[in-house]
Design a binder for these strands. Structure first.
Lengths: 271, 271
DNA sequence: TTCATACAGTATAGAACATACACTAATATA
DNA sequence: TATATTAGTGTATGTTCTATACTGTATGAA
């Protein structure tokens, strides 16, 4: 099944054209004029537009204009606007943080926060990051580093992949949460609830405590009254540590019944 | 701060018009013709269109047509198309599962899976569910039930809310993952990697094991070669149990040092 | 009973957009 | 040199959201 080993292969599958271009695997040009464009320049221009004008500013015309080129040129390199958006997300990420001999737990904390921060730095990615399995060079490097951090744990490869994937989903989720307490839409008529407090008072106004007993109780207890340090984000660490604690527990379990990888080990079920 | 207590209030804030309409808090009509529309019918029509033709079929014209009405009518009830999309997501959810005396852990398992399944049943929600804090009656009921499941644990209200929110984010994440191994776009030029195997072989083809040592090792070990029971989803339970184990650990910690809620309790940090 | 006012839905039109298709010009191979 | 192949262009079409001005209707006040 998994025939691999690196660099040179027998040339296997068609490989979707976009993926090929993302990896620089294009057949060298044979005839015709010298290309003045390439996927990289196009992507960079599109990202620049998104950074400057937001996602709604990203139109084929706009991107083309920034390159001094006719809109239709872009379609030589990108099958559709949606493809362009996908590549933008892929290449808007920096490289992942370095491992530097940190413990798996420390590194994954850094990794997840960096992941979240990358999304927050370019919030236009949030609506278009489709959380598909990573396929580009950058996102795969992120995955690789997370796996590397877990390399010397007794987890199976599958468990490592699952753990990394889950953490990346958590980063995405947190970025969304922070990015906007917006209820309506993307930018225009954004019925924005600008603060946690405002969210709390709105809830208080709406909730009938008969229909929402537990939630009303939570609101009463002041959960949504602006805890002091939203800045140094306790909420982010809370969920992250849930996950890391879960991973730690799994590692501990694996370390005990080491020889017999039992698929359904006992789990605590405290009240 | 949190002035509340249910039903009758002193009438507080403007309350965003869309939110008001979602909760049926509109001033009763005084003059003019009888309305033939309302937000509910519009939303239902829009959902029907989305179910039938996918998200791209949802245009104002299309929705209006299904109601036998001119497109511009909708703007009496919805400030923009994006608002309509937001309301669609809100009201496409069923009510949450019943608690029925289950343990917090059992219930949250059911709850999270139901949440995921609701998203998978109407995958058009995935690109437009913005993971904002819930504000509609349905999504708040979901939150309420999760809090109820945790009611008799020693967690603080804030921790309960965080836990519920994180689980809901996990459900969303998993739904995205399952919904499509698509790399390109939404429907047209979808350079779809149709299976886990295909994903695996594509990775094998692309990866240089020098640049991606840990990931290449994972691929070599056959992680992406279609584990037997993707159907009865072990992957979903994996990440879910990470979270639930983390919650269990937190509960255990809280139960021990009960009197002194110490913000930074010790955590395990196994190698 | 009359009339002004407020409101529901409509008609029209405009601007922006993605993209299909046919084309021109440039380059490398035969 | 002739020919095939390719990069980028111009034009055009259909769709989309939505601003604005409008028509008719029901109500409350005079």
């Amino acid at each position: 099944m998994s025939q691999r080993k690196g660099t040179a292969m027998v040339d296997e599958q068609p490989l979707p054209p976009l993926v090929a271009r993302m990896w620089g695997r294009e057949p060298p040009t044979r005839r015709g004029p010298q290309p003045s464009l390439n996927l990289e320049r196009i992507t960079a221009a599109a990202i620049a537009v998104a950074d400057a004008e937001g996602l709604s500013g990203v139109s084929m015309s706009n991107v083309a204009a920034r390159l001094g080129v006719a809109p239709m040129s872009l379609y030589r390199y990108v099958g559709s606007k949606d493809e362009l958006l996908a590549v933008m997300v892929e290449s808007a990420f920096e490289n992942p943080p370095r491992l530097d001999g940190r413990s798996w737990r420390d590194y994954l904390t850094v990794w997840t926060r960096a992941n979240r921060d990358a999304l927050l730095a370019r919030p236009w990615m949030l609506p278009i990051a489709h959380l598909a399995p990573p396929i580009g060079p950058r996102s795969l490097r992120w995955l690789d580093r997370a796996l590397a951090a877990l390399a010397h744990t007794p987890l199976t490869e599958g468990e490592k992949v699952n753990a990394a994937t889950t953490l990346s989903g958590y980063a995405f989720f947190q970025a969304n949460l922070i990015s906007g307490l917006s209820v309506g839409a993307n930018q225009r008529e954004r019925a924005r609830l600008t603060s946690v407090q405002e969210y709390g008072t709105t809830l208080a106004e709406l909730l009938d405590s008969a229909d929402y007993p537990a939630l009303a109780h939570a609101v009463d207890s002041g959960v949504f009254s602006a805890s002091q340090d939203w800045v140094e984000d306790a909420d982010f660490l809370f969920g992250l540590n849930l996950l890391l604690d879960g991973i730690a527990a799994l590692i501990a379990r694996r370390s005990v019944d080491d020889e017999q990888p039992n698929e359904t080990s006992p789990r605590s079920d405290a009240p």
